[in-house]
Simulated assay, not measured.
Amino acid sequence: MTDPTNTSDPTGPADPTDPGLRADAQMNRDRLLEASAEAFAQTGADTSLKAIAQRAGVGIGTLYRRFPTREDLIEATYRNETTKLCRSAATLLESLDPILALRKWTNDFIDYMLTKHGMADALPSILAAREGLRASSRSMLHDAIETIRTAGIEAGELRADVPAEDVLMALGGIALIAGGEHDRALASRLLDLMIVGLTRRD
């Protein structure tokens, strides 16, 4: 498995764990990425790195050893959040009916987009410099939706005439509208409307 912070890997988001790390080092890395995602979503990409380290319960030196620059941390956070969200699609289906899994996943997608929005000033240049990262992320998100969509069609719960690409575009629109209005509750209401539209009606 590759390190998500390894900029020599052209394949895009990768495994959020690194088998080369000791367990305590991996735990610190995971905590830093979780703390950075929360901080970027709340206060943007310019948030204090010292504050992120404190939120994660580690020293600033630990942060800089893993992520020498702010851009390194932003990229790793983006990769980690994308990977976690996409992997969760199959996991949700293990315990939820497809419609409920889709509703939970789309809600998590909005939270993911809010994190991405918090990194908006810095992320475009990272995506532009990192060949294949944007396309790979979109492909992963498409496949995650397709996983739930296929299960829903097979269960007779979801319409078969709406492709995963359309669902992804609709989600992007909801995130854009709700983000522009700074209204998370609006996103939830729009998601409910979208799920109704995707539900099979015989």
Rank of each mutant, 00 (worst) to 15 (best):
M1W: 14
T7V: 15
T7W: 13
S8I: 13
D9A: 05
D9C: 00
P10S: 03
P10Y: 06
G12K: 08
D15W: 13
D15F: 12
D15V: 12
L21W: 09
L21I: 07
L21C: 00
L21R: 07
R22V: 11
A25Y: 03
Q26V: 08
D30V: 06
L32E: 10
S36R: 11
E38I: 12
A39I: 06
F40L: 00
A41E: 03
S48G: 08
L49V: 02
L49D: 06
K50S: 14
R55K: 15
A56G: 13
G57A: 05
V58N: 05
I60A: 11
I60L: 11
I60G: 03
G61V: 07
T62Y: 11
L63D: 01
Y64N: 08
T69F: 08
R70D: 00
E71I: 06
E71G: 13
E71L: 12
E71Y: 11
D72C: 06
I74S: 04
E75N: 09
E75S: 14
N80K: 10
T83M: 14
K84R: 10
C86G: 10
S88C: 01
A89I: 00
A90F: 02
A90M: 05
T91E: 09
L92H: 01
L93V: 07
E94V: 11
S95T: 15
L96G: 08
D97G: 04
P98G: 04
P98A: 00
A101V: 02
L102K: 02
R103A: 15
R103L: 13
K104M: 08
W105Q: 07
W105K: 12
W105G: 06
W105M: 02
W105R: 04
T106K: 05
D108Q: 13
D108K: 10
D111L: 09
T115H: 10
K116F: 07
H117D: 15
G118F: 10
M119R: 11
M119S: 09
D121K: 15
A122C: 11
L123E: 05
L127C: 03
L127D: 04
R130Y: 05
G132H: 11
L133P: 01
L133H: 01
R134H: 14
S136T: 02
S136N: 07
R138F: 12
D143V: 05
A144R: 05
I145W: 10
I145D: 09
I145P: 08
R149E: 04
T150A: 13
R159K: 13
V162Y: 01
L168K: 08
M169K: 15
A170D: 08
I177D: 11
I177W: 06
G179M: 07
G180D: 01
E181W: 12
H182V: 09
H182A: 14
D183E: 09
D183W: 08
L186W: 04
L186K: 04
L186V: 06
S188H: 12
R189Q: 12
L191G: 03
I195W: 12
L198P: 02
L198K: 07
T199H: 08
R201S: 15
D202V: 13
D202T: 13
